[in-house]
Write a protein that binds this DNA or RNA. Sequence first.
RNA 1: GGCCCUAUCGUCUAACGGUUAGGACAUCGGCUUUUCAAGCCGGUAAUCCGGGUUCGAUUCCCGGUAGGGUCACCA
Length: 472
Amino acid sequence: MDNKKVVTRFAPSPTGFIHVGNLRTALYAYLWAKRNNGTFILRIEDTDKAREVEGSIEHIMKALKWMGLDWDEGPDIGGPNAPYKQSERLESYKKYAQILIDKGLAYPDPYTQDELDGFREKAELEKRAFLYREYRPETFDVWDGTKALRFKVPEIKSYHWDDLVYGDLSAGPEALDDFILIKTDGYPTYNFAHVIDDLEMKVTHVMRGQEFISSVPKYLSLYDGLGIERPLFATLPPIMGKDGNKKLGKRDGAKDVLDYGKEGYLPEAMMNFLAFLGWNPGGEKEIYSKEELINIFDISRIGHSGAQWNDDKLDWFNKEYIKKLPQDELKNKIFEYLPEELKIEKLIPTIVDRISKFGDIKEMLERGELDFFFKSPDYTKEKLIYKNTSPDKISSNLKEAIISLQKLDEKEFSLENIKVTLMQIADKLENRGELLHPVRFALSGLDKSPDPFTIAEILGKNETILRLQKAI
RNA sequence: GGCCCUAUCGUCUAACGGUUAGGACAUCGGCUUUUCAAGCCGGUAAUCCGGGUUCGAUUCCCGGUAGGGUCACCA
């Protein structure tokens, strides 16, 4: 096993978008493959034709690409073990099904759906798990494809196995049953298909969520029945919803991965955040680039307990990554969310300080926080007054400010110079607010706004002077 | 109900028998040029409970409790 090239796979079913829980599974599989210079496979598990949603394969691929999880083999690019869609691998499943039939380990299910429902209902009434194998027929018909093909569990026993994350895992014989290999529609079940595919695609590490633990004995009995070597298992702890009481799932509002992109989250931030949801390299560093994650990711440090989804922490990660963005990239990103008249470079620092994701810009605009730039402020005289200062005093302060600012020429009208100029006046006052507040208000007309120096710099000399004169 | 998994601040986690139980997010307080934001500094806050094992348990074992998962011709 040690010398084998590491092969991992992400195997979604095309039933819609993938959410962040799915994405973390993909991320871990990706990181582990890359860490070991191995292969990361994308395989589409489209065996449930009823639930299939059109366009989801493209959607899923788009989501993986968004976060930079490129696959080495997949339905679009092919690979040595193509095809990578289960619906195109029916011959393989048939072949292995025949092997099982020949071994006497597979048989057609003689019961109707109603009969099965009856058995299940009975078990439920008796408050015990339903086990099909208790109804296994004595003699098997020849399978002609019109009935579902079931696996005959070779040996009913407790299974113990080793998991790379959880260590020793076990399940009682109740977990073992004659599950369906091939459905009446001719497609295999996940239980059967994934085992065959993993074998043929030489997958070495199967990484999947905790919800599969109780199914593992079924797979183990199938590996045994087939007489094939099984891969290594790495079980991932669940991601819980915001309330922390349920596994994250679509029906509880788990969002489409691509929606995070639309809201202005950076893929690097999402990757970093997701990597840390259930895994931690130890130590106190938290910001890790993709390359760093690849170098340090270790299956054995994946946690065992469910982690609650936390938007605040994601926002924090995102802000950290926004701050690290190169100027031109930052500018492009921000301008994407800005109307034409506000695509002003001077505005960028003011915006960056006030957002954690680019989508927040939309809300800033809605709240009118940037109105000062293109609208001449509209306010009542009283708003200019600072505490108990008299209107006359305010006026004379503003006049002094204008005179001083006039001395700066256009070129000198920088944040630093404006600040020095205004502070010189303000410091002579009993209260700095007697100047700073009216100036800020005259320029912005807003109760909450950036500081007066910043606004003045953004507006430029002419507009600043104009608004101050108007205020007087 | 059977089977299985889990349990450290509100949240994500570190500490793989000996620490004043560490960090981050959130929260609270302070500072910085009035407001807002950002930034900086600081505070509050945790080993689920009960038994063992041990000189010593967050750490190992058992039992409870709580939470989660699973028992499909879904994956």
